[in-house]
Amino acid sequence: MMWRAIWAIIARELTRMLRQRGRLLSSMVRPLIWLLVIGTGFGAMLSHFGPGGYQQFLVPGLLCMVLLFGAMLASLSLVYDQESGVMRMLIIAPFAHYWIVLARTVSAAVVGLVQSVILIVILVVIGYFNAAVNLAILILGLVVTAFVCASLGMLIAVFSKTLDNFAVIMNFVIFPVFFLSGALYPVQHLPLVLKIVTLVNPFSYGVDLLKHAMLDGLTTPLGTDFTIGQDLLYMIGFTVAATGVACLRFSHAPVIETLARILSTPRRR
């Protein structure tokens, strides 16, 4: 009964993604700048890891970056969807309100995944995707990480009242989550406080899992920090808990009432 609604929500999200070409393009350019500019710069400094060693280390983190921006922004858009009108359709649709959270989490994850696949294709073409990758772990890692990003975004979205500003989201959510993971440097060398934050951050485990998929076959000192089992356990646990809390919160009558109020207040501006 719900699958058609969920599929429609996914299809709409993908259509939107493909129609906003500029945004899609910039979400591809962003990781490539990291790889080709910053990766090259630091790579030269860290040349004792072998030629291209640092760049190879960066690739898993950058795939996760695409998931983070794609999936998390898609689920955070719940907050400013009040302007798009879709929230009005969803809130009066004939299913329990928590389905809105579930369906949008899934669709956000799918958006992130599609973007990460596009990036992989680009990486293959420009020769930064090594052949020694463990495909099963890679796919598993991408999917689970996409859900982590989507459910983290959803959790923030259902609790926030003020996150309607893109710059605020970037500075206080996306950047901290990205920088305080193992995406750019190995976790074990971090000072204690940052290390703790990184260990709590579920995104770190996604980066780590992709490192397992892409770096295990290589001999590089810039390796992984956790086991595959730890990564999966933490991420799946996080996704289930975050989604559950988001569903409960969103189904709460006062939350829906406030939302309904906002949805029928004539737009300022």
């Binding site: 709409r12 259509t15 939107r16 879709v86 009005r88 359709m89 029928s264 004539p266 737009r267």
Partner: peptide
């Protein structure tokens, strides 16, 4: 029921 809000319940991008 069918509800038509005071504000549009349509997706402008579609």
């Amino acid at each position: 029921i069918g509800l038509v809000f005071q504000e549009s319940a349509l997706d402008r991008n579609l």
